[in-house]
Amino acid sequence: MATEDHAENDIPLKVLQIFKDEKARPKVIRTYDVNVGWLAEQRSPVLTWLVVDEFIESGKTSVDLKWRSKKHQVSLLDLRPRNGPVPRAVRGEPRVVPPQR
């Protein structure tokens, strides 16, 4: 099962929940690229965290998955958003000001 540190070969927990089976090994049948549209995926990899990262890095944003007779469409950006929240300073913390010359 996927953990907080996400082992590269784990299937994302959200995907297992979509297929309602912790033993699901869903394969990617199509990918969506914003510049091209939907493309058939020749190699049909199982959607692991490693594959999610690989697809996001290559500009893919969604996938069509198939496991047994079930098919689902999943947003890769919902699984692993590109940018997390920007950390902000706590109010009242002193700000570092460069010395005046």
Rank of each mutant, 00 (worst) to 15 (best):
K23H: 12
K14L: 08
K71D: 07
A2T: 13
Q100C: 07
K66T: 01
S58R: 13
G84F: 01
E8V: 04
W49Q: 00
R68N: 10
I11T: 15
V96I: 00
V28A: 03
F55W: 10
R30F: 07
R91M: 08
P45C: 00
L76C: 06
R101C: 09
I11M: 06
K14D: 14
R88T: 01
K23V: 03
V90L: 15
E41M: 10
T61D: 06
V97R: 11
A24V: 05
I18A: 11
R88L: 01
G92S: 04
D21M: 09
L65Q: 08
D33N: 13
W67I: 02
E57Q: 13
V51Y: 15
V34H: 04
A40V: 02
R95V: 01
H6M: 03
V51S: 04
E54P: 00
V96T: 05
M1F: 15
R43L: 03
R95F: 04
W49C: 01
N9G: 10
R80Q: 15
R80L: 09
L47C: 10
K27Y: 06
K27G: 08
S58A: 10
R88Y: 01
H72T: 01
A24S: 13
K70Q: 13
K14C: 06
V15Y: 11
P98Y: 08
S58Q: 12
R101L: 11
K70G: 05
K60E: 02
E4S: 09
A7H: 15
V28W: 15
P12E: 11
V63Y: 13
I29G: 09
E57H: 15
V36P: 02
N9H: 14
V46S: 07
T31F: 03
K14M: 09
L47R: 05
R88I: 01
E22H: 11
P26E: 01
K23R: 09
R82P: 01
S69A: 11
K27F: 05
P98W: 06
A2N: 13
L39G: 02
K70F: 03
V15M: 07
L13T: 10
H72Y: 09
L50P: 00
K20R: 14
E54F: 15
T3A: 03
K66E: 14
V34K: 04
